[in-house]
């Protein structure tokens, strides 16, 4: 059986879950991890990890400003904005 520390994962993912859902969520995750573990049978010695299916790296562009941030447009529809700033709970006492 895979050892799932659901509380730790929820903390890392910034999620929460009611106590009534936790045992089912843990059971589902354990089954998923067991399924995923099937790939451990594949021998991969000397095989390089592949992050991009075309084996390409990020394209570089000239170090020049090409776009301006339009704060007014991006903040439209957000009622938690004041003078161009996003309003959040106090973070400094």
């Amino acid at each position: 059986m895979t050892d799932i520390d659901l509380n730790h994962l929820l903390h890392l993912a910034a999620l929460d879950m009611p106590a009534t859902e936790r045992s089912l969520a843990t059971a589902d995750l354990e089954r998923i991890i067991e399924m995923i573990d099937r790939m451990q049978r594949v021998t991969t010695d000397g095989v390089l990890p592949m992050a991009n299916p075309l084996d390409r790296t990020q394209r570089l562009r000239p170090d020049a400003v090409t776009e301006q941030v339009n704060r007014t447009v991006f903040q439209q529809g957000n009622e938690h904005v004041h003078d161009g700033y996003y309003i959040v709970p106090r973070v400094v006492d």
Partner: peptide, 10 residues
Amino acid sequence: KRRILTGTYA
């Protein structure tokens, strides 16, 4: 949530 947690685990 299930997929985020799976990815977080990995």
